[in-house]
Design a protein around this nucleic acid. Structure first.
Length: 542
RNA sequence: GCCCACGUAGCUCAGUUGGAUAGAGCAACGGUUUCCUAAACCGUAGGCCACAGGUUCGAAUCCUGUCGUGGGUACCA
């Protein structure tokens, strides 16, 4: 529908030059009586042309060559909106389009041939994934899905670091638990990893090695085994949500292949570094950042900034057209340094899209659960998935905009009731499947021949909603906003239920029944496709 | 102190480059089933869009300030 109007306006633009001076857009009005699509061009132009917007609107309309088989009515309304009403016959053709595209309806080849990298989760293997990681994981995977739907080839990537102090403490935590198992009286420091999983790993090691490792350094076998164990857990947790990363990128490899030294040399030759207090500083103040920052500590060890920059350089070198990073808000101070550092090397930082999601507050029985990995006072992602199910977890994390703080009410998520919107969608899908089955027993087949019979209010509304899916996917993907798909689907399901409630398929005259059946099939396709983007299942019965 | 995000119905949240009368779900109250799934549908009620200024034809949306919430502000990541 929009496409048609764009074309008509472009044609009219040959006579009305001023149309090319504004950003032409068509919106679905909030109020149905305002038409199917509305254009505010006249109001945008009134300032430039110093003319009454309603007068301009009149001039625009009289220059549009509208096909009355497609547009039934135009009007000038309010301060100068131009409203367009489409003919019911044109609207019913939507069904045909959806059924013929089927699983592909909503997909576009707009970015065909382009490569995208979506980096998400990226938690270091120091413990099980928590609820907070869950939001990151689900949103990241869904953003990747969306990009695939608009044509990108997407690599899902996980960046981690298994060196450094954090991991040493981890290895040592396991060793202490191990020594405790051997019967030694050892004080376990407060700032060590307190979680039960540490004890579990220690137990496993004890089972396998007995007391043979009592003199082993914590950085050796203990760290090694612990890392493997925890990473297996993390991968399994993600798998339960249907998430698989293609690439696991280890920070260490940046040292091994000389990237870090290369970077340092590069910055030095660009005269962007200096020494102070025995540390190496990067002149970020020359790159649009407020203060300079340390990139190599006085101990000789780089800070996280240097490998982070090096890592992003590899993403450019690996030929990605779009680079998406998804972080929790606790990282919001770090990425500007990285972007500036990358840009200084001559890379196009506009290819990098940094998404910051806000924190998740977990409520249990109405009370806030405070979280700390170190203290092991947290709810794991596994617990969440186990209690609520993968579909609910994915839907909950997807249904809020990334920038909003969200409450995850565990007590509510566990309730498999109508307080859970995901069931509303799944129910609509199951209902349609059931209808199709029942109706087919009556020897009715969905037919595209008499679609013009779908002329009732509810049918027309449903059709228009279905039509918007393609646009909605494109918009969600380009703006990295998975939650829009949830909102869309809920509205679609509501439109379907209303249709279902008032109009029968079985018992209607054959031609009408077959047209309605086609409409139901089209709805089923769109719900299924939408849920697929979200990574939520579309059950055939409930 | 400074930086980032947020503040919309009782609760959880939408609100598309600034658009017409601010929306949904849940909770509350009332109604609908001899009929393809009632996990549904219909109706009622619920608002100073945190507050105060500014920008303009027009602001929940943009700018400034105040208050509140979360996060950050290391030679931790």
């Amino acid at each position: 529908m929009k496409k048609y109007l764009y074309k008509i306006f472009t044609d009219a633009g040959q006579k009305l030059n001023y149309l090319s001076e504004i950003y032409l857009s068509f919106d679905v009005p909030k109020i149905e009586s305002h038409g199917d699509l509305s254009c505010n061009a006249a109001m945008l132009l009134s300032k430039k042309l110093k003319e009454n917007p309603r007068k301009i609107a009149q001039e625009i309309i009289s220059n549009l060559k509208l096909d009355n088989r497609i547009i039934s009515k135009t009007e000038i309304a309010g301060p100068g909106f131009i409203n367009f009403f489409f003919t019911p016959e044109f609207v019913t053709k939507i069904t045909f389009d959806i059924i013929s595209k089927c699983d592909f309806f909503g997909k576009s080849s707009k970015n065909k041939g382009k490569k995208a990298n979506v980096e998400f989760v990226s938690a270091n293997p120091t413990g099980p994934l928590t609820v907070g990681h869950g939001r990151n994981a689900v949103v990241g995977d869904t953003v990747a899905n969306l990009l695939e739907w608009i044509g990108y080839t997407v690599d899902r990537e996980y960046y981690f670091n298994n060196a450094g102090r954090q991991m040493r403490v981890l290895g040592d935590s396991v060793k202490l638990r191990y020594l405790q198992l051997l019967g030694k009286e050892i004080l376990f420091p407060d700032d060590y990893y307190q979680g039960d999983y540490i004890k579990e790993i220690a137990k496993k090691i004890y089972k396998k090695y007995g007391d043979n490792l009592k003199d082993e350094q914590p950085e050796g076998k203990f760290k090694e085994i612990t890392e493997v164990e925890i990473f297996e857990d993390i991968k399994n947790s993600l798998k339960r949500l249907g998430i698989t990363h293609k690439i696991f990128y280890n920070e260490n490899s940046l040292y091994d292949d000389g990237k870090i030294n290369w970077l340092l040399d590069k910055y030095e030759s660009l005269e962007l570094t200096y020494k102070r207090d025995n540390a190496t500083w990067l002149k970020l103040s020359k790159l649009g950042i407020e203060e300079d920052k340390v990139i190599v500590k006085s101990s000789g060890e780089p800070t996280y900034r240097l490998p982070d920059i090096g890592y992003h350089v590899t993403k450019f070198e690996r030929g990605y057209d779009l680079i998406v990073d998804l972080f929790g808000s606790d990282h919001n101070a770090t990425y500007p340094d990285v972007l500036a550092g990358v840009k200084a090397l001559g890379y196009d930082d506009s290819k990098i899209k940094v998404l910051i999601h806000q924190f998740v507050t977990v409520l249990k029985k109405g009370e806030v659960v405070k979280m700390s990995t170190r203290k092991a006072n947290y709810i794991t992602l596994d617990e969440l998935v186990e209690e609520a199910g993968s579909d609910v977890v994915r839907y909950f994390f997807n249904m809020r905009s990334v920038s909003s703080h969200m409450n995850f009410d565990l007590t509510l998520a566990k309730k498999q009731s109508d307080e859970n919107p995901v069931f509303y969608l799944q129910y609509a899908h199951a209902r349609i499947c059931s209808i199709i089955k029942t109706v087919e027993e009556e020897k009715l087949k969905p037919s595209k021949d008499n679609l013009e019979l779908l002329s009732s209010e509810e049918e027309q509304r449903l059709l228009k909603k279905l039509h918007l899916f393609e646009e909605e996917v494109l918009y969600s993907a380009e703006n990295f906003e998975p939650h829009r798909i949830c909102i869309y689907l809920e509205e679609l399901a509501a439109a379907f239920h209303k249709f279902y409630h008032l109009h029968r398929i079985l018992g209607s005259e054959k031609k009408l029944a077959e047209a309605r059946l086609a409409l139901a099939v089209a709805t089923k396709i769109v719900i299924k496709n939408g849920l697929e983007i979200l990574g939520v299942s579309a059950p055939e019965r409930m």
